[in-house]
Design a protein around this nucleic acid. Structure first.
Lengths: 351, 351
DNA sequence: CTGAAAGCGCTTACAG
DNA sequence: CTGAAAGCGCTTACAG
């Protein structure tokens, strides 16, 4: 500390400053920085040593003005910031960084998408990625703007937007797997927990349930029951607990419960257990997303894994392809197949 | 879609292009964009309408070159990306965005800090914030570079770095609160779960435990026991479970257990319950961080809340002050006092 | 290796 | 309101 005070480093703001400091021409410094040939090893070493010593870094904005890309990807996050969304963000960022792309990240609060995308464009990002679920009209508008603008884009999760490059989970397949798993255990009456949510992904899951039942010649309306309307969904954990408590004393209770997500599933597990019901002896429960908490309950919660690593790998690949190659004429769609993770919360139907 | 194909928007890359498109002088457009006085309302409206129609956004890099700040804050995240760290990131980003600062975020893998900070400096970020715990030598080096460079900085969480502006949790006070809470319940023998970790924050917590015991004239060595050395800490949940299972059959078992974090605490809760012990009837357990899972176990896990909102508010305030005011001579230190959240996992000592 | 010059997209005086 | 000019920090030919 005292040392750095007695010999303050000169603050070098430009290659001009820096070149003067090293005692070389600006041109020469520039050529070293860009690895151009025909320079003496000594000169190169001198410049590098001075960079280390002074901490000088060329101004990235000026570089960009001279035609280099900004080497920055804009990432728009859904405002909920769920743990799975965070994991996707972290994984994607790591893959992009490995290719020397930095990430400019903004959380998209409702109504802010236009402002955020314009900011990204003003930063001349090389591509914009959206992670999560967004307002249908907003995201549609943003995608068509980006397409018109010629800026590469990708949606992770939000499926069904016309013209959008998309990587999304086949949630219907996930639910089909869960229902098949439970059918094999002899369950035929299913309680739906939170699946009447207007959330975009709830519809796909209902389709998956319908498909599995139909394949076994079972009637959806006869086999399923929902009490979602009896409670307000404030926190998911509490919502699941409240639904379970109501179901616990309801006549003709289903033997298997399908939750919209893990939080509702864990809440329901507690609600049933508190009501004196044993899981999976008296009833089975499944969650969705396979978050860490699924392994932390007793019994563990059967869930559906989103396959985050393959999802993000596919996403990174699509973005990098767009950055490297010519613009595609048609949007690219990738579907990721989720994986059922069976745990102790699901078992044979009570006899 | 077909509409946008039949009338493709011209791609406007510069104010020159845009001004030509609107039929105004570049100078005039620039003055509208910067809200300068002396312009006809009609002209202003014309420019704004054209911006909407074309989606033109001025190049932020050129703006920066002309002397505006980059309006970007660099944020370095600890590589673990724990949920509390993510919540801090999200909250901080939101506060900064309210002041029109964008966030450039990078995860600091070990050994990468120099590269990441240099990248941020090349982007001419207005400040750099570090969230989480880092390698002592690396973070010390980065901070002294930033101080020398005159770039504002702030550490969130990582306390004890000389010369660094810091906002951090008083973890010792948190542990003292937990121990006092348990002493009041009549506990005098404490099992320590994971607290022998070399993690930077474990030391502070041990101090807190010592302080609480000393205040009650209790001897630390006589009152505490650790079996950390008997298990390998791979996953925290499993680690907690393994420690609890070993403690369950150990002679002279403590009556209260203090876990390094919530994951270890929840794992221990399961481990004890699986071993046939009742919580809190037979023993008490506390976690640390007060994550959502604490409310999702049966019983709920007593924990220590990090006070993320006040922490981040203090952090944002410190950053914005540095950006607004003159450079301070001395580093600023803010300590956040955590709050004990008592739940069902702690109760009277067994008689 | 040096040095002068052009130009990336902007803003800001300055003269019309 | 227009238009020409300078300059922010860089790179890249070009002539020495």
């Amino acid at each position: 500390m005292s040392k750095s005070k007695s010999t303050p480093r000169p603050i070098l703001r430009s290659t001009a400053d820096f070149a003067r400091h090293v005692g070389l021409a600006r041109t020469t410094v520039s050529r070293v920085l860009n690895g151009q040939p025909g320079l003496k090893p000594k000169t190169i070493a001198r410049v590098h040593a001075a960079m280390e010593a002074t901490g000088f870094t060329p101004n990235a904005h000026a570089l960009h003005l001279k035609g280099k890309n900004s080497a920055t990807i804009g990432i728009c996050m859904e405002d909920l910031l769920t743990p799975p969304a965070m994991r996707k963000l972290a994984a994607l960022q790591r893959l992009l960084r490995a290719q020397n792309y930095a990430s400019l990240i903004e959380v998209l609060d409702p109504g802010e998408s236009r402002r955020v995308v314009r900011h990204f464009l003003s930063m001349r990002v090389d591509a914009i990625v959206f992670i999560g679920l967004f307002d249908e009209a907003e995201i549609t508008a943003r995608i068509s703007e980006l397409v018109a603008h010629g800026t590469p884009h990708l949606l992770i999760d939000h499926a069904g937007i016309a013209g959008a490059n998309t990587v999304s989970l086949d949630r219907a397949a996930g639910m089909t797997a869960v229902v098949n798993h439970l059918l094999a255990f002899g369950h035929t009456r299913f309680g739906l927990l939170g699946l009447s949510s207007p959330a975009l992904t709830a519809g796909a899951r209902l389709h998956g349930i319908r498909a599995a039942l139909a394949a076994h010649r079972l009637d959806f309306d006869a086999c399923t029951q929902s009490l979602d309307h009896l409670h307000v969904r404030a926190g998911d954990f509490e919502y699941g607990r409240a639904l379970a408590t109501t179901f616990a004393t309801a006549p003709n209770r289903p033997t298997a419960f399908l939750a919209l997500n893990d939080e509702i599933g864990v809440g329901a597990l507690h609600g049933f257990q508190t009501s004196g019901l044993r899981v999976p002896h008296d009833l089975s429960i499944s969650g969705f997303n396979n978050q860490d908490i699924c392994a932390m309950t007793t019994p563990g919660l059967t869930s559906v894994d989103q396959q985050i690593a393959p999802t993000v790998a596919a996403a990174a690949k699509l973005i990098l392809e767009q950055l490297a190659g010519p613009a595609r004429r048609r949007p690219v769609l990738r579907t990721i197949v989720p994986e059922l993770v069976a745990r102790g919360s699901t078992g044979p139907a009570p006899t």
